[in-house]
Write a protein that binds this DNA or RNA. Sequence first.
DNA 1: ATGACGGTGTGGCACCGA
Length: 260
Amino acid sequence: MKIATWNVNSLAVRLPQVLDWLAANPVDVLCLQELKLSDDKFPLDALTAAGYQSAVFGQKTYNGVAILSRAPARNIVRNIVGFTDEQSRVIAATLDTPQGELRVVNGYFVNGHAPGTDKFEYKMRWLEGLRNWLRDELSAHPRLVLVGDFNITCDDRDTYDAEGLRETIHHTTEERQHLQALLALGLHDAFRLFEQPEKSYSWWDYREMAFRRNRGLRIDYILVSDALKPRVSACVIDKLPRKNERPSDHVPVVAHLNLL
DNA sequence: ATGACGGTGTGGCACCGA
């Protein structure tokens, strides 16, 4: 089975691109972030017609996440249990696939603006809340994936300018320690389980021709639990949608799982 | 040093993202 994550930066604008991408890439699960629309505006019918069920946690203007899946979803949880949040950033669901259960946690991690700001403090508290909840989720669901827009570069390979951007947002030691603490719960970056091209990124600024110059960051991840790690056969970043007219600034990441 | 681009909501610009 194939699972993908994509920050679409407004599903209202990007729906045609999502439908085109699904037609060309018929994945079993697609996790979306930054829907930027309320639940009543979610394009349920178009995605149903494309063959996908939708578990949605929308929000007007900002944030918003959804899990699209061919298999039915149950035990849907919205936001982090034990962490009060005004913003719609997390949705989790158990999928009953033909190859058994899969717990999917989809997150739009806090941006954080800059170290020393209130937004950065919120990011740190949010990451701690996520970790505390995920510890329980992993105990209850050994076959778990945590995917989404993490808004953190894992290490210096994940940025176009490691020296120039050192200790700036998405590159700070504090953010990276939080990501390492998540991994220490028993999660693995599917992308790094395989040899990958150098300078592989999942996001490029809209400005300064950043995509053409490949000045990007890898901040969108698929993390798999210990139990799933030996079941991952590939993980790739699909840069093609960044060449579309009116593209999202992020592109999809896809992992192949050989479930039993 | 700053802003650059794009989306949203409001209203002719501000805020936010990464």
